[in-house]
Design a protein around this nucleic acid. Structure first.
Lengths: 195, 195
DNA sequence: CCTGTTCCGATGCGACCGCATCGGAACGGC
DNA sequence: GCCGTTCCGATGCGGTCGCATCGGAACAGG
């Protein structure tokens, strides 16, 4: 058995480079050459890992989707003792990617979201992550309040976080304002859970 | 005075072509050549109207932004007799661009939104439209319910519509589902306007 | 050491990009 | 009819793109 490399690990390395470039200059800046340079590998290596550029982007989308959902799951595991309501709050805050620390992920996510509007393959990848997050939120909301349709509130909450994140990214809201709006929405949810 | 053309009218014609291409294939499909072909003018004519491609995109953004806000204003003028609450509902529905008829505008809007995350000039253009819509909604909400901070609810509502629109575009929600979620949010707002 | 296999860096290709240039068509003023 | 101005279609340029190709480096088994 000759030279062997960890293809999956390399794929993740390249996906990180893709996301970094998208964060800084948008999706169209993720060219094969620039991605290779950013990941500090040769273009040939990138082409070995992914047959086409589209395949690379799809993998990068799944990669960042997994990062976000994994962080959400981790957040849950790390705080099992809190009340269900505050858990939902923390989780929504995490998903909204409002923290400056996660601004890069938010920008990348938004870029993929727009691309998915005209690319069914990317849309399918995004839906996988969204469905995961919705399941998570639905279960939590069902625990937190007595409502006949927890999924309804989960869907609304997810749309709100996405909208707020976008508005923060273009400077229409400050992170603090978005945080406040999100908190207020949740407060109203706990106070009046009725369908 | 030699040959004269209506530059503003031509600019709008080209902007429509830009938006049509973005709707169908995304922002990067709006190349000078394809835009010219779509608008049925020569590439030279496009370059005469806009010094650079970036200038063309900015104009197209302002163009579609004006279309959306103008439709919102028109909606208001057309229905002055209704209750303030239902007026807000209709307006939010209009802004959310949920109708299949406005799907093209929604996709174009989302494409610009993502681009604005890495392009300050586009972000400024978007903020102009958003601020206009927020003013509109804030005034309406102040009329509809007694709340100490109508702008707060306007901002939340706008973020929700944007998120719902995006989720519809990627197929995560059906238009009917989004419509229902939006309606439910407004119902809760009228029932419990307290800050 | 040699061989067979895996991997990759370099290079080339055809296509397309934004932009600049320019010759001539179109048309009002004289 | 000629002129001056405005406009635009065609063309070319330098650059970058995604992708295909290939020679050789790296390395395990014989």
């Amino acid at each position: 058995m000759p030279k062997q490399v960890d293809h999956d690990e390399r794929r993740r390395l390249i996906a990180d480079a893709v996301c970094a470039l998208i964060d800084e200059q948008g999706l169209e800046a993720a060219t094969l050459r620039d991605v290779a340079a950013r990941a500090d590998v040769s273009m040939g290596a990138v082409q070995r890992c992914f047959r086409t550029k589209g395949e690379m982007l799809q993998f990068a989308l799944a990669h960042i989707g997994h990062q976000v959902t994994a962080r959400a799951h981790a957040r849950l595991r790390a705080a099992p003792a809190q009340s269900p309501a505050s858990t939902v709050g923390h989780l929504a805050h995490e998903i909204a990617l409002l923290k400056t620390r996660h601004r890069a992920q938010a920008r990348t996510w938004l870029a993929f979201l727009a691309a998915a509007a005209v690319d069914p393959a990317l849309a399918a990848g995004l839906r996988t992550s969204y469905t995961d997050l919705e399941t998570l939120l639905t279960d939590l909301i069902a625990d937190a309040v007595d409502t006949p349709d927890p999924a309804h509130h989960a869907h609304t909450l997810l749309a709100l976080t996405d909208g707020l994140t976008a508005h923060v990214l273009i400077g229409q809201r400050t992170p603090a304002e978005a945080e406040h709006l999100l908190h207020a929405h949740l407060s109203r949810l706990w106070a009046h859970p009725g369908e």
